[in-house]
Design a protein around this nucleic acid. Structure first.
Lengths: 164, 164
DNA sequence: CAGAATCCCCAGTATATTAGTTGACTTTTA
DNA sequence: TAAAAGTCAACTAATATACTGGGGATTCTG
């Protein structure tokens, strides 16, 4: 029941982008350095996030990545699902209709399946309830909100203004 | 975030033993056949469960395994922890004291760590709240409680009587 | 316009884990 | 004493993980 580095790095990188929102494209290199992740490896992960439509990239000098949505509209669950696939502790939870590939014939009568289903739902609930903004806010509080350079929250205010 | 077959088979096998409680030692062969698990592989898993004190074995003909505790006193979490180790989606949750092996120096300041901690607690809560007896009861209900051969519940009654 | 800074893509690779298999040995019952 | 069971140790094929390496393509800056 371990999360792979894909999921962890994905969330960490997205959090890093959220913390630097409003500063234009953030280069992979800087994210990798701050978060201590192999640059080349992170590149592959960002590719997945880009294809999934969570980040947008700009090529060339001064290029980098930005979030496509606001931090409050991106949950940790969104990111984990992109990086690791659907949240299901066992595969039999995935194919629910008979005839589909990988469907377990015991689906209807399996009592342990219900256990894993509850586990999956519980994980999903936690991950879907936490957004990048929550993480930014937590970090801002940790640093002391008076002195913190809390871009993420500033961006929030900006988006509220924009949305009026 | 997948459970391995170790955890799944472990729970399934223990559930099988719970369903046949009171019938003396249950052979690995019969468990493997009913639950469609490789007998030799299951053997290794039962070895772990035995060392952990969850089951007791009897050697020789008519031998097999029995539960050491009552089904209501064995949670799915107990079994999963034996089979898969501590429930923690990331390793940094495990070593909490500085100086211990694998301690992450960012423990105190890492905001994503809190996410994984919540996930781990949520998984633990679910797994610890479900006992083998719950599974047996569910199965008995599924079969229709009037006709069901619900040994597990009979055993429950027996244990209540014994405990008076 | 050169070159540096970026992102993009494809391919390889060492290590570990998973999910077993094989086989020899011991214990107990009928 | 033979068959039925658990015990133990070693081997293995397949897969996933967590990278590394190298060559492009694109864009900004001097």
């Amino acid at each position: 029941m371990k999360l792979s580095t894909k999921g962890r790095y994905g969330v960490t990188a997205m959090y890093d982008l959220a913390m630097h929102i409003g500063k234009g494209p953030i280069s992979l290199k800087s994210v990798a350095a701050r978060q201590q992740i192999s640059e080349h490896y992170l590149e592959q992960l960002m590719g997945q996030l880009r294809k999934a439509g969570l980040v947008k990239s700009t090529r060339g000098a001064q290029g980098g990545y930005i979030l496509v949505k606001q931090p409050q509209d991106i949950s940790v669950g969104d990111i984990v699902r992109v990086m690791e696939g659907p949240i299901a502790p066992v595969d039999c939870l995935l194919s629910t209709d008979p005839g589909s590939n990988g469907y377990c014939p015991r689906t209807e009568i399996c009592v342990t399946r219900n256990v894993w289903q509850k586990v999956g739902e519980s994980i999903s609930n936690v991950l879907d309830s936490i957004t990048l903004q929550d993480l930014c806010r937590e970090e801002a509080q940790r640093r002391g909100s008076a002195t913190a350079n809390n871009n993420c929250l500033k961006a929030d205010v900006k988006s509220i203004v924009t949305n009026i």
